[in-house]
Design a protein around this nucleic acid. Structure first.
Length: 109
DNA sequence: ACCCTGACTTATT
DNA sequence: CAATAAGCCAGGG
């Protein structure tokens, strides 16, 4: 069976591992930090590839709107929110995270 | 090769 | 703020 570029996934996971506790990064941020600006979707795919028992803090990756991209009501969505709140990340009433406050990598790098 | 789909993003209406 | 459109990269039928 064909294998989806393992090196790329490794690089993406490495960047995600750099997001400090209590902070988040957008898919676009991770892609840019990994040296592939514009490849936000690629990041999502890499995360989906993660083994269940990984220690990579995948939950610290949210979309550009400061929202969780996993399906509403899904187990993953619930887990992600629980973990983020446990790290002290606050969700606004509209379900969004204030990126100005919790973003790990600034747009300027 | 063609087309649809997705843990995405930005701009426009 | 919601709906559209267009750009983006790659997997799978």
């Amino acid at each position: 069976m064909t294998y989806p570029e393992p090196d790329i996934n490794q690089r993406i996971w490495q960047i995600v591992a750099l997001i400090p506790r209590g902070k988040v990064a957008t898919y676009g941020d991770v892609a840019a930090q990994a040296g592939m600006p514009g490849a936000a979707r690629r990041v999502g795919r890499a995360l989906k590839h993660l083994p269940r028992d990984t220690r990579i803090p995948w939950h610290r990756v949210v979309n550009a709107q400061g929202r969780i991209s996993l399906a509403e009501g899904s187990a993953g969505q619930y887990t992600q929110r629980e973990r983020l709140e446990a790290e002290g990340i606050a969700f606004q009433p509209n379900g969004r995270i204030n990126l100005r406050e919790f973003r790990a990598f600034s747009a300027a790098g």
